[in-house]
Amino acid sequence: MLFAKTHQHQSNLATYCRTGNPVEIKGAVQKNLTHYRRLVFNNVLDTLETAYPITKNLLGDESWETIVNRFFSTYNIKSPQIWRMPEEFKNYLIEQEKDLLITYPFLENLLEFEWLEIEIFMMPDVPHKKYKDGFYTLNPEIDMMMLSYPVHIKNPNLITEKDKGSYFVSLHRNPDTGSIQFTNLSIPFVDVLEHLAANPLTEKDIKQILKKYASENEVNIAYDEFIKQSLTTQLLFK
């Protein structure tokens, strides 16, 4: 069994790496311990910066580093996979950094959007099943989200309360390039994608759904545009 004093020495080193606050560790070369803090913290900082470039840019370098330091000092990271750590950072900010969310009411949306991009980029492959001719199928490597602010289409520095509303966006992984593409969706097309997520649809099926929202002429124009774009980005397959 590990002695309490040995545990304490390890805990002291880990705490120093997390907080940067000097601790006394028996037998340690203090000047060399600073390298552990530097290496450990920079690794976390780099990973989060890569995950949330827009959020970091919005908050500015100094504020960003302060927040990351607070996160790393106080929050116990659970995932052994470092690429998943940014999700825990996002949840920490949403749950613990209330003042930040008051200053930037759209921040929660922005964090969710930036994380979803990573999650879909990394998600396990989902086999795509070819369906019968004449049917459209949805790219299975996809997720949709509803936003209260247009963080996916507008520079966050320009977003104001006037922008508050309901926005829908889908993110999917291009099977050829692996890149993540987002599609800004109106409610009728959210409806279409939700139906497509359940079953492949024909042109007639899709137009039938759209007719709930618009005239036949408008439906035909919107359908053509949507299908053309969706097949190009491989949101849909035919």
């Binding site: 069994m1 590990l2 002695f3 390890q10 880990a14 997390r18 690794n43 990271i77």
Partner: peptide, 24 residues
């Protein structure tokens, strides 16, 4: 060790060279 007090640190920290640590 790269995890302590149930928190991952994502780096390789030195274990104290002690007999109890050997066993553990």
């Amino acid at each position: 060790f790269s995890k302590c007090d149930n928190a991952h640190l994502f780096d390789l920290l030195p274990i104290p060279f002690t007999q109890d640590a050997v066993k553990h």
